[in-house]
């Protein structure tokens, strides 16, 4: 992929966070790591911007935050998906698929 890196598209960050949190309780650092790993470093995320997003999602009741002791014996703030968050994630994925589907259709047929 080389130098070709994308800023996380506005509006998709929430969806990506919810998706990763759906896999189980995870702290902010873990989310950042996983996002880089899974996307093979394609997304260039200003790591700090993750936290306002996490706090916003928690405030809306889509994520639940709790303090736990990590493997390294430190206290970390772990986020997990709430039932409300799961519903939100589903609807965001649906929207995303409709959007990308429509874009793909235009690209294919407008030649």
């Amino acid at each position: 992929m080389g130098e070709e890196r994308a800023e996380v598209l506005k509006g998709t960050l929430d969806m990506l966070i919810l998706k990763i949190a759906a896999l189980g309780p995870i702290h902010g650092y873990g989310i950042a790591q996983r996002m880089q790993q899974i996307s093979r470093d394609f997304f260039q995320l200003q790591q700090g911007s993750l936290y306002p997003a996490l706090h916003r999602l928690a405030d809306r009741g889509w994520l639940k935050a709790e303090w736990r002791v990590t493997e390294t014996g430190r206290e970390g703030k772990f986020y997990s998906l709430t039932p409300k968050g799961r519903k939100q994630l589903e609807s965001e994925i649906e929207n995303w698929e409709r959007l990308t589907g429509a874009v793909a259709l235009i690209l294919q047929t407008a030649e």
Binding site: G28, Y29, K77
Partner: peptide, 13 residues
């Protein structure tokens, strides 16, 4: 808590 959370991230990284 906010401070602890962010510091956790920085120190881990």
């Amino acid at each position: 808590q906010l401070d602890t959370e962010l510091r956790f991230h920085l120190e881990q990284q």
